[in-house]
Design a protein around this nucleic acid. Sequence first.
DNA 1: AATGAATGAGTATTCATTCAT
DNA 2: CATGAATGAATACTCATTCAT
Lengths: 219, 219, 219, 219
Amino acid sequence: MSEQEWLKEIFEQGKKDQKVSEKQIKIIEAAVEIFSEKGYAAASTSEIAKKAGVAEGTIFRHYRTKKDLLYSIITPTLLKIVFPVVAKTFIKQVLVKHEDLSFDEIIRKMLFNRYNFVKNNTPLLKIILQEIAFHDEMKMQFQEAFMDHAYNKLIEVVEYYQAKGEIIDIPTKSVIRMVVTTIFGFLIMRFIIVPESEWNDEEEIELTIQFIMNGLSKK
Amino acid sequence: MSEQEWLKEIFEQGKKDQKVSEKQIKIIEAAVEIFSEKGYAAASTSEIAKKAGVAEGTIFRHYRTKKDLLYSIITPTLLKIVFPVVAKTFIKQVLVKHEDLSFDEIIRKMLFNRYNFVKNNTPLLKIILQEIAFHDEMKMQFQEAFMDHAYNKLIEVVEYYQAKGEIIDIPTKSVIRMVVTTIFGFLIMRFIIVPESEWNDEEEIELTIQFIMNGLSKK
Amino acid sequence: MSEQEWLKEIFEQGKKDQKVSEKQIKIIEAAVEIFSEKGYAAASTSEIAKKAGVAEGTIFRHYRTKKDLLYSIITPTLLKIVFPVVAKTFIKQVLVKHEDLSFDEIIRKMLFNRYNFVKNNTPLLKIILQEIAFHDEMKMQFQEAFMDHAYNKLIEVVEYYQAKGEIIDIPTKSVIRMVVTTIFGFLIMRFIIVPESEWNDEEEIELTIQFIMNGLSKK
Amino acid sequence: MSEQEWLKEIFEQGKKDQKVSEKQIKIIEAAVEIFSEKGYAAASTSEIAKKAGVAEGTIFRHYRTKKDLLYSIITPTLLKIVFPVVAKTFIKQVLVKHEDLSFDEIIRKMLFNRYNFVKNNTPLLKIILQEIAFHDEMKMQFQEAFMDHAYNKLIEVVEYYQAKGEIIDIPTKSVIRMVVTTIFGFLIMRFIIVPESEWNDEEEIELTIQFIMNGLSKK
DNA sequence: AATGAATGAGTATTCATTCAT
DNA sequence: CATGAATGAATACTCATTCAT
């Protein structure tokens, strides 16, 4: 799937009748690139227009304001960061169907899933990481998404494994904090802070899983 | 030590003859506050001047450009983030004097030290975290500082404990990555991402140390 | 006669073969409303299009420019302001047929006639009053219309009554100025400046006639 | 008194400590000229700046918005239109001191006073006449000023002369309407609508007074 | 040293108009 | 005929920076 098709898919979500035109894609591609390079505030609509190969007015035909453009880029992504569609699958596997996934299999699945997501969406992620600090509405959208779609389910999962005795009996939310910061700490280092360094991804992933498992398993 | 004196100390470093005037302190205080609230690009010098209680022109008498003002705030902090002055102390204790500090005592010291640092410098840290992504010069300054003052020493320390058999035999830099992301992951969550939530700091610190130790210790 | 039909009649004048379509009427209705509310310069064609329920481009299919749209609205009205069709009738009655209309009957007829005209065309009048100051072409059209169709005839009429001794012997054009400003002064107050106040129209009209008659009659 | 000094005097009113700078005067002069020529909406700040010989930014240093500039021009004039300072004088003469001014002397004074005012402030008046229709706040300011400073006093005066039997016994406010429209009708014709025509001002003023007096006096 | 008026390039946004469908 | 996406020039306004006082 080409990058164009990929972006198209993401941004057409939820407005399936409203076609996203060729030019709109170009605008979004340009905006993503420039926003992630210089930040929202320092990006100028004229530069975006030039890079997208459209007239400046064209941007405002599709997005009422510069902020609208930002949100149209970010909103559909916010949900996706928070937790994978796949999540549903293994939530079911674990909690409903009681299939015997061990905790490290869960961690491995999550890590791989997020690894791929971050790898494919690095610029979008950079934008969110940068801008979430300055746009309260965005922060709230994110928190809501996290609470509704991830946090509660993570708690169930962790408690399940704590009950089974696979992981240590410390406050559930501390467990979650540690898992989440370790995973995203790795991914942010890997793709955002020092992407230019050489990474042996397979090894680092395995080490990260091991680190989490040792950190949390009983004895 | 009042906050004014604290800032004075930080920003006088390295230019001990150049007095930092009352007004300059006011400007820096205002700049730190506004930069951390809205980001460098979205902050206006006129707003900073107003908050500092000086005329617009006065800022430019002390700092040639807006960017100079940013760097004058950030540069002296960059070093301090990277690693504690204290480091020298325990590097000596560990590597030179061969005092018998265990690895978890090291981790505990580091964590407490960084905890206090981040707690006392949250706004400065926020600025750096935000702006480092957009200013290459700043990124390089940081990397240099990290390499020169922290990384090599951390390697020595980690290798020392790996040799002693206290921690597992995985690539040294992976150990460092995991320690660093876990510690800063905690601190960033604690002070920047969800500072408004209630934190039982003592407990979380202990859990974090435990997590790192379990994650890295042999067996 | 519905308002639609009324507008249709006005704007079809002079181009009897060119049908005025349903959409064109809608456009004109919308334009009249918006021009009179916010003025020509502050009205946007896109707002007019939206209110008319047509596409933005449709306006420009019928009117080459925004200014064309303005003139197409105003030109047919300019003549009608200046003097009533009815005028021909009483010019004939007075000057040609020498029927014995007294001067106050003339004034009364004019006043009633203009009263009805202004009442039925307030928004159009507002537009003209506003825009005539800024569009020289329009001003000239108006002056020409006034000179050709009203002024000369008014002079004849006034001189006729001066000769008959019904009105005082001051410069004819001063008489005209006073009659005209008194009548339009009343109508503009009544319909444009303070239309929201309660008006006893019959009484005010009679008083106005009386005022003019006393002001101009001999002794 | 040069025009510069005249404008200075008007616009410094009420903020006597705040000096009005040379540049500010230039800006106001340019704004008055351009607003009156093309109307507020069609006037561009860049054109005003160019005509004033200042940078565009300079306008906004003195007036936060274009609308502020408009109001700073208009507000001090609104009061002055409504009624002359002199008014106080003859109100006293007539109502308090019972000096024996006849009604036509009152009318003559008013007319001369307003004649001079309009003559000296034609462009400002044009602006107000044009813009009052589109800016509700301005309309309200004007109505308030009129009600507070003119209307009630005019009623007293007119009732005084009606009681004395000098003018006819029709509703007081109709008298006022007729006087006001006749006077301003004349002045607007004279200075705004056809200023280019040759006017014998003395004669027209006398005729206008005569017209009003005949129109209103008993028999 | 400090001020703050002045600058002018730059910003997001609007709008009349064009044109391919 | 009608549409509405696209244009690009123009708009009000902001801002870092300069400089005379």
